[in-house]
């Protein structure tokens, strides 16, 4: 397809260079990482930036580190980097599962976690994981760096707290101090690559703390704190799960769109909650299974 839009292209080698370009072109520049979103947006005239700054060759982003206690993934990290990281899979299964559910290999080889988070679409698969792990987003501008809690990151569909003069450096996560496990459940229209009709991340700790976050069922991904409050400190029982499920209708406010009706989304949110809680408890106790099967494949 031909582009009716032309732009100027820059490929900085350092963060300082990238930031100075960003300052120079102010609101006219868009950052290009994997490009799997931006290329489509430019083709379809949804984005018409006069300047594109390719940050893939920036060599001085702080390095990624993965340990069971903490994790830092820099802006160069692709989804394939996450999917192929055995230690990450073990320590942060929810994040791993979310990354694996994004598109397909040929996209994951290119698309970055940073680019994805900055896209801030409502169906953002990794958002529930980041919300459950209380991630911090690290950004830099020419006047310095700052940390933004993931809970303050999503403003509205496709809008984040990151300013136009800032570049995302990476995200960090500190794991809960006690034994914990997580799971990401994604409901799509079929088993193959799809955008989520609904997504749920569930994190559980050995001291019975629960964290729940939904995506694709509201304008931005969110933590279901009211439901967490009902669960916290309690052992999972059928009754407890029932009372948690009963809260879904008041907690989740989805819309009807091409991918799903509002009614089905609400229904699925309940099913996900029940199955997610049961599955994550099993996983905490050492069970091994493929989360893609939890909702019927």
């Amino acid at each position: 397809m031909a582009f009716s839009h032309s732009f100027e292209y820059f490929r900085p080698g350092t963060l300082a260079e990238a930031l100075s370009l960003l300052d120079q072109y102010k609101g006219d520049a868009r950052l290009l990482a994997g490009g799997t979103d931006l290329a489509v947006h430019i083709k379809e005239n949804m984005a018409t930036p006069p300047v594109v700054i390719d940050v893939k060759r920036v060599t001085d982003f702080p390095g990624s580190r993965v340990s069971p206690k903490a994790l830092y993934l820099n802006a160069s990290t692709t989804f394939s980097d996450i999917v192929n990281h055995a230690d990450l899979r073990k320590a942060y299964p929810m994040l791993w599962e979310a990354a694996r559910s994004v598109a397909s290999v040929g996209i994951r080889n290119r698309a970055t976690l940073a680019g994805n988070i900055c896209s801030a679409v409502p169906s953002l698969d990794v958002a529930p994981a980041l919300l459950c792990y209380d991630a911090i987003v690290h950004v830099a501008s020419s006047s310095g760096t700052r940390e933004i809690s993931i809970h303050d990151w999503f403003i509205s569909p496709r809008k984040t707290a990151c300013l136009g003069t800032e570049i995302m450096l990476g995200i960090s996560i500190t794991a809960p101090a006690v034994k914990h496990s997580g799971i990401y459940l994604k409901q799509g229209r079929y088993r193959g690559e799809d955008l989520a009709q609904a997504g749920l991340g569930v994190l559980i700790t050995s001291d019975l703390q629960y964290r729940l976050a939904y995506c694709a069922v509201g304008p931005i991904p969110f933590r279901a704190r009211a439901i967490e409050a009902v669960l916290n400190g309690k052992v999972l029982t059928a009754e407890l799960i029932s009372s948690a499920k009963a809260m879904v209708q008041d907690t989740v406010h989805p819309i009807t769109d091409i991918r799903s009706s509002k009614e089905y989304r609400l229904h699925i949110c309940e099913v996900m909650l029940e199955r997610g809680l049961k599955a994550v408890e099993q996983r905490l106790n050492g069970a091994e299974f493929d989360s893609a099967e939890i909702l019927g494949g």
Binding site: L32, T36, A39, D54, I107, R110
Partner: peptide, 12 residues
């Protein structure tokens, strides 16, 4: 690594 050449600018 496999990529989608329709989503990449040649200049990259």
């Amino acid at each position: 690594k496999s990529v989608r050449s329709c989503l990449i600018f040649a200049i990259e």
